[in-house]
């Protein structure tokens, strides 16, 4: 099993969610995040002072998938989240040792 984590632009969330649902993904977790990558932040002026702002609002999306689906899910996220502009985000895959569904106690792939 794999955990696919994606950091995307907040306004792409809807497209990504729909694309994942169309692919057959049945659940996901999202959270509001802040961060920067190669783009860095930007500078802005507020009330007479200039600031650099490092962290940009992002959405973090996590999906648990079967091993064989991981590459395809990454592709789905890439396709839906891509605008071609700076700050589109990143997707990565990490191995998962065990998954259990709390209600039924199912383990492994059954619990995804």
């Amino acid at each position: 099993m794999k955990l696919v984590t994606a950091i995307i632009k907040p306004h792409q969330l809807d497209e990504v969610k729909e694309a994942l649902e169309a692919f057959g993904i049945q659940g996901m977790t999202i959270s509001e995040a802040q961060g920067y990558g190669r783009q860095r932040g930007h500078s802005e002026v507020y009330r007479g002072a200039e600031y650099t702002v490092d962290f940009v609002p992002k959405t973090r999306l996590e999906v648990l998938v079967d091993d064989m689906d991981a590459t395809s899910v990454v592709d789905v996220v890439l396709k839906a989240a891509q605008t071609g502009r700076i700050g589109d985000g990143k997707v990565w895959v990490t191995p998962v040792e065990e998954v259990a569904r709390v209600r039924t106690g199912e383990r492994g792939v059954e619990a995804i």
């Binding site: 802040q34 932040g41 500078s43 007479g48 002072a49 200039e50 600031y51 650099t52 702002v53 490092d54 962290f55 940009v56």
Partner: peptide, 10 residues
């Protein structure tokens, strides 16, 4: 949002 002031007021 992180970052720091770069002009004035400092």
């Amino acid at each position: 949002r992180g970052g720091r002031m770069t002009t004035a007021a400092a």
